[in-house]
């Protein structure tokens, strides 16, 4: 009974928050609802023993996306009244509600018909883990079995950044992203931004490092490091470099570039792209991850920093 409640409570709350986030009219409360929703989803994943997913949800789904949405809603406040005036007609809203209900119902029925236990490749992923040299099967999936997907995802992130930059006005191209933040140098934000980053960076690097054998990994670690960087930015302690800086561009592409280079090493040594020679899997995976982590942290931080707004001098 208590166990049931333990599982049911987050599930019900998630549903309630989902409904709240959908129905609330204002952007900011919806964002807050979404943040809470993300936190509860993290709890649910932990309950389902998906700690890797939980970490990702907390870092990226809740944290990073939440931060993006909070900043977007702050910018959108001025337009809110106008958006509300464009409310569609009652008939249209009813049609949308009925259709959403139908789709939800169809999905719910579908989920109930799925085979239980679900067929899974988990056993096979564990059975072949030895040659990869890593202990966490999820890392084996990401860095060995499906390394190509991970490589391409790191390029997706880079393209997302290019997309953010594309919103810049022509004259600001090459300049610094976002506004320059001026926080009170003796205020609480500046204080936190001085105290927290050393700890946060260690936590981020730790989560990155244990990813080889335990839940964690570069994406989650990079998000935490990026968050620390943003904290110092928003406290006015540092500024974003102009996007035309060569070192920054090189750092951005270094991760995917090293990934491809290691793939080519596979071609030279084993004849197959993205294959690791015997006994070299773990070190090569580490090389990729060490190259990817800073690239990812920088990319994520810059995505949040926004489009260039201030022309470089």
């Amino acid at each position: 009974m208590i166990v049931d409640a333990f599982y049911a409570a987050p599930a019900l709350l998630i549903l309630a928050l989902g409904v709240y986030t959908t129905f609330v009219r204002d952007t900011f409360p919806a964002t807050v609802g979404f943040l809470a929703y993300g936190l509860l989803l993290t709890v649910a994943w932990v309950q389902l023993h998906g700690v890797d997913v939980a970490l990702t949800e907390a870092a990226i789904g809740g944290g990073l996306t939440g931060l993006l949405l909070v900043r977007a809603s702050a910018k959108l406040r001025a337009t809110e009244a106008g958006a509300r005036a464009q409310r569609p007609s009652l008939a249209l809203r009813l049609a949308a509600a009925v259709l959403c209900g139908c789709v939800t119902l169809a999905l719910a029925i579908t989920v109930l018909t799925l085979p239980d236990p679900a067929p899974s490749l988990a056993v096979e992923a564990l059975a072949h883990i030895a040659p990869t040299g890593v202990g966490n099967p999820i890392t084996a999936v990401l860095m060995a079995y499906r390394a190509m997907d991970t490589l391409l995802e790191s390029i997706v992130l880079l393209l997302a950044l290019v997309g953010v930059w594309s919103l810049a006005p022509d004259r600001a191209w090459g300049g610094r992203p976002g506004p320059r933040y001026n926080a009170d140098p003796d205020g609480i934000l500046a204080f936190i931004a001085r105290v927290l980053p050393p700890i946060g960076i260690i936590v981020g690097v730790y989560i990155f490092w244990v990813g080889a054998d335990a839940p964690g990994g570069k994406f989650q670690g990079a998000t935490i490091v990026a968050a620390m960087w943003l904290l110092t930015l928003m406290a006015g302690l540092s500024d974003v470099p102009p996007i035309s800086r060569r070192w920054m561009r090189v750092l951005l592409v270094a991760g995917p570039a090293v990934f491809i280079a290691v793939g080519i090493v596979g071609v030279i040594t084993t004849g197959t792209f993205l294959a690791y020679p015997d006994g070299w899997a773990k070190p090569l995976i580490l090389v990729i991850e060490f190259a990817l982590m800073p690239s990812l942290a920088l990319t994520l931080g810059l995505v949040l920093a926004g489009a260039p707004e201030r022309p470089a001098p």
Partner: peptide, 26 residues
Amino acid sequence: TTPGGWLLPLAILMPFVGVLAGLALG
């Protein structure tokens, strides 16, 4: 893998290598 199969990852990645190089060289 079939003969000539290696051309497939090449065709996918070559443009992306171009993207990386273009971004870095600027």
